[in-house]
């Protein structure tokens, strides 16, 4: 190819090539960043509607103890009293929404955040909680404890 003769054509072709190259870079960036941004977008977690959930085996559940289980996306505290009764309450403290726990030494349900206390029927007895814990239904089916919402 003769350099001198093709100077103007060369010029425009070069610009055109550069233009295409830039276009390609933009397209490339798009094809990288589109999935990247989509990836970083927090995926929507669909809330599962839970109506009942198993809280494990009764025989494995010691008397005078409590445990927290997951009920959908909410915690539920399941308590086995010293006499063997199984009860379940929402584990969300009615004060500011901390998760409550069973205190064997106090014999109460206790919230660590502000020392709120509930008795084993879920009733608020001391500290800041304004109202009792929500009650869940605990059914014993065979050896399995089934927790469901009160209807």
């Amino acid at each position: 190819m003769d350099n001198v003769q093709n100077q103007p054509v060369q010029k425009s072709r070069r610009d055109f090539l550069k233009y295409l190259l830039n276009l390609g870079i933009v397209g490339f960036a798009a094809s990288i960043f589109y999935p990247l941004i989509a990836y970083l977008k927090p995926p929507k977690q669909n809330e599962v509607v839970v109506t009942s959930v198993s809280a494990g085996k009764l025989s494995a559940f010691e008397k005078d103890s409590g445990k927290i289980i997951r009920f959908g996306s909410k915690p539920v505290i399941v308590i086995r009293t010293a006499s063997g009764d199984v009860r379940a309450f929402s584990a969300i403290c009615t004060h500011l929404g901390c998760t409550v726990q069973f205190r064997k030494d106090l014999g109460t349900i206790w919230c660590a955040c502000h020392n709120g206390k509930y008795d084993l029927n879920g009733k608020n007895i001391s500290g800041p909680p304004p109202r009792p814990l929500d009650v869940y239904k605990a059914i014993i089916k065979g050896d399995e404890i089934i927790i469901s919402k009160m209807t």
Binding site: L17, L23, G24, I25, G27, F28
Partner: peptide
Amino acid sequence: GISVVIISFLALMLYLF
């Protein structure tokens, strides 16, 4: 398909460059 076309296009342009 789309991204392969784009990447290949860019590669081709780069090659010409």
